[in-house]
Simulated scan of single mutants.
Amino acid sequence: MINFFRVVSFLEGISYILLLFVAVPIKYLQGDPTYVKMLGMPHGLLFVGYIVLAIMLKYELNWNTKTFGIVCLLSVLPFGTFFVGNYLNKETT
């Protein structure tokens, strides 16, 4: 399940970057909300999936509160989810 979580975290990070740095500027600079609508739903689903998987892994891998908190914090920081795999590797070794 941890490998699936890493894939979801990567995809969530890509969708977040596209939403923040492509779709939102187009919306406000060109007045075209199409890309925000197109990218918003997949990003939202990936974000919810990321959080649900993090909760499941918290119990499966007996994460402490600090590890779980950092994994959740990384989900709201731009580029944060790209570091989840490295962080989890450090925590498990």
Rank of each mutant, 00 (worst) to 15 (best):
L29R: 09
N86H: 00
F4Y: 08
L57S: 06
F47H: 07
A23I: 08
L45G: 15
Y50H: 05
I55Q: 10
N3K: 14
P25C: 05
L20R: 04
L88Y: 00
I70S: 09
K58G: 05
W63A: 09
Y35I: 00
N64G: 11
Y35W: 12
K27T: 05
P33K: 01
D32V: 03
T81L: 11
F83I: 08
F5W: 10
G85V: 01
F83D: 07
L20A: 11
F82G: 09
N62L: 11
I2L: 15
Y87C: 06
W63T: 09
W63C: 00
L74S: 02
L45Y: 00
F47N: 12
L45Q: 05
E60G: 13
M56C: 04
Y87N: 03
W63L: 13
C72V: 15
L29E: 14
V48D: 07
F47V: 14
L88S: 05
M41N: 03
F5M: 10
V76M: 10
M56D: 05
V71A: 13
V48C: 12
S15T: 14
L20N: 10
V84G: 06
L77F: 15
G85Y: 01
T81F: 10
D32P: 02
R6Q: 08
L53A: 08
L18R: 00
L46W: 00
P33F: 15
V76F: 15
I70P: 11
K90I: 04
F79E: 13
G69W: 13
L11V: 00
K37P: 01
M41K: 02
V52R: 12
P25I: 07
L46T: 13
T34C: 00
G80C: 11
V8T: 12
G85W: 01
K66V: 07
F79N: 10
P25H: 05
K66E: 14
K27Q: 10
G85H: 06
L20V: 06
L18H: 04
F5V: 03
I70G: 03
F4D: 07
E12L: 15
N86C: 04
N89L: 04
F83A: 12
F82E: 12
F82K: 11
S9D: 07
I2G: 13
F4W: 14
A54E: 03
L74K: 11
T81V: 08
I2N: 13
N89Y: 01
F47I: 14
L74W: 11
G49N: 14
S9N: 09
T92V: 10
G31I: 02
M1V: 09
G31W: 03
V24S: 07
N89F: 01
L77C: 08
Y16I: 04
M38G: 01
T65G: 03
N3V: 12
K27P: 02
N89G: 05
T65R: 13
N62K: 14
N86W: 01
L11Q: 03
K66G: 06
V36F: 00
N86T: 13
Y50V: 14
L77T: 07
P33M: 05
L20W: 09
A23H: 00
T65F: 11
F79T: 15
Q30P: 03
F83W: 02
A23L: 08
V22C: 04
L11M: 14
Y28K: 02
I2V: 15
L18I: 07
F5S: 00
N62Y: 04
G13V: 04
V22T: 08
M1H: 11
S15Q: 04
V8S: 06
